[in-house]
Design a protein around this nucleic acid. Structure first.
Lengths: 221, 221
DNA sequence: TCACTAATGTACGAACTAGTACGTTAGCTA
DNA sequence: TAGCTAACGTACTAGTTCGTACATTAGTGA
C-alpha cells in the first residue's frame, strides 16, 4: 500500500539515519525561525518529526548544537546560490545589477533564513563562533564583486572607490531589511514591502540605487 | 546618611509609582533586547529592579504587555528625535543628507531599540498590533521627506520619482542592517560595521548612496 | 487623627521544558 | 544464522518560570 516511493530501498520508513537527520533539521528550521532560539521547543520539534526527541540529542547533542546545525545548512544554501553566479561575461553595470537581483531573489525566497540570521544576531553570533564550518568559508559573491568592481573602475564606468565588502553590505541591507522588517514596517507605515505586486518595483529600485551610487558624478563635490 | 539626593521629595526611595514603573521599563528594555521575548526572564527583570516581580504584574499585567510597553517607549524616542528635525531651510540635497544622517545617528545610538524591533519582527509585529498607541501615530520624518522630495523634484534636482515611504525604507535599511546584523556580518566577513573609526565612512556612504539615487541621470536608460 | 486606597512585599504553586537513564530492534557482517 | 552495533523509543526527572493568593504599609483626604 505505502511502498510506492523509494525504488531501491525497501520502504524507507525506518532506520534511515540520513533522512531522520534531515527531517529534524527541516522541522527545527521552521520551529527556530518561528519562535526564536529560546521560544523554540525541543518537544515541539520532535513531535512534528517522524522520530522522537531522543534522536535530536542522539544526532545533535542539544538545543544549541541543533541551532548551529540549522544555521550551517541555511548559510550553505545561499553560498551554493552564489556559486551559480555567472556574470563575468556581462558588462560591469549589468553584472552588478544581476548580482543584486540574485541577492534580492534569494532573500525573498528564504524568509526562514532571514529570521534565523536575525535570531543569531540577537545572540551576538555565538553559534557562528561555535561552528567549525561557518567561520572559515566566506562568500563566493565577494570575489565576484571584487572582480566586477575592478573592471568597472578600470573602464571608467564606476566612479566610486568602493570596497567589495561595503558594496555587499549595501546590497544585503536593502534585501535583508525588506524581509526582516516586513511586519513592523507594515504595521507602522501600512505598506507591505514583500507584497507580490511590488516585487518588481523594489527589485528595480535596488539595482537603480546601487548603480547610481557606483556611477555617480563625483566631480560636483 | 543616605538622604543627600532628591531635594524637594523626602527621600524618594519608597512609594514612587512613576519611578517604579520607569525603572521596570528600563530594566525590561535591557533584558528583552538581551535575550529576546521568550528568552527574557520576568524574575531577572524584577531582580535587577529596586522593586519586586509583583509590581510588574501590578503595573503591566504580564510579560506580553510589558514588552508592548517597552516597544511603545522605544518607538516614542525615535519619533521625538525625528520631531527635532529642522531641515526645511536647507536645499533638498542637503536636507535629505541631514535626514539620513539623523536616522543613522539614532540607530547607532540605540542598539537596544534595533534589537527590540528585530525581536518584534520575529513575532510578526503582534505587540504593535495589540498596542492602541503604536498603530496610530506614524513617523514625523515621513512628512518631512514628502516635502523635501516635492521641492527637489520641482527644482529639477531630483530625477527619481520616488515615494517618501520607499525612500524612508531605503535609508532605514542601511542604518538598521549595520546595527542589527553587526554580529553575523562581523563573524562572516571579518568587518565590524559599527567600529568607531568606520563611522564617518559609512555615514558618508549612506548619504552618497541616497543622493546618487535621487539625482541619477535617468536619460541614459 | 483616622480611615481608606494605592502601592508594595512574601511565599508559593502549577505547568512547562531541556535533558537523560534505560530498554529495544533493525539490519549488516562474519 | 548468530551476534553486534547503529538507530530508535519510552518514561521519567530536576530545575525552571510565569503568574497569583495573601499580607502589609505609606500617604492622603475628610
Amino acid at each position: 500500500m505505502t511502498s510506492v516511493e523509494e525504488p531501491a530501498r525497501p520502504v524507507g520508513r525506518i532506520r534511515d539515519a540520513a533522512r531522520t537527520k534531515a527531517e529534524i533539521l527541516d522541522v527545527a528550521t521552521q520551529e527556530f525561525s518561528r519562535a526564536g532560539f529560546a521560544g523554540a521547543r525541543v518537544d515541539e520539534i520532535a513531535a512534528r518529526t517522524r522520530t522522537t526527541k531522543r534522536m535530536i540529542y542522539y544526532y545533535f547533542g542539544g538545543k544549541e548544537q541543533l541551532f548551529t546545525a540549522v544555521l550551517e545548512r541555511a548559510y550553505s544554501a545561499i553560498r551554493m546560490a552564489e556559486q551559480e553566479l555567472d556574470v563575468e561575461h556581462l558588462d560591469p553595470v549589468a553584472a552588478i545589477r544581476r548580482l543584486a537581483e540574485l541577492t534580492f531573489d534569494h532573500h525573498e525566497a528564504h524568509p526562514d533564513f532571514i529570521r534565523l540570521v536575525s535570531i543569531e544576531n540577537i545572540h551576538e553570533a555565538e553559534h557562528i563562533a561555535a561552528s567549525e564550518e561557518l567561520g572559515k568559508i566566506g562568500s563566493p559573491a565577494l570575489e565576484v564583486i571584487r572582480r566586477i568592481l575592478e573592471t568597472g573602475r578600470k573602464s571608467g564606468l564606476f566612479t566610486a572607490d568602493v570596497d567589495a565588502v561595503d558594496l555587499h553590505a549595501m546590497i544585503s541591507s536593502f534585501c535583508f531589511f525588506r524581509v526582516s522588517n516586513r511586519h513592523t514596517f507594515g504595521a507602522l507605515f501600512g505598506r507591505d514591502l514583500v507584497a507580490p505586486d511590488q516585487r518588481e518595483h523594489y527589485r528595480t529600485m535596488l539595482g537603480d540605487m546601487v548603480i547610481a551610487y557606483l556611477t555617480a558624478d563625483r566631480t560636483e563635490d
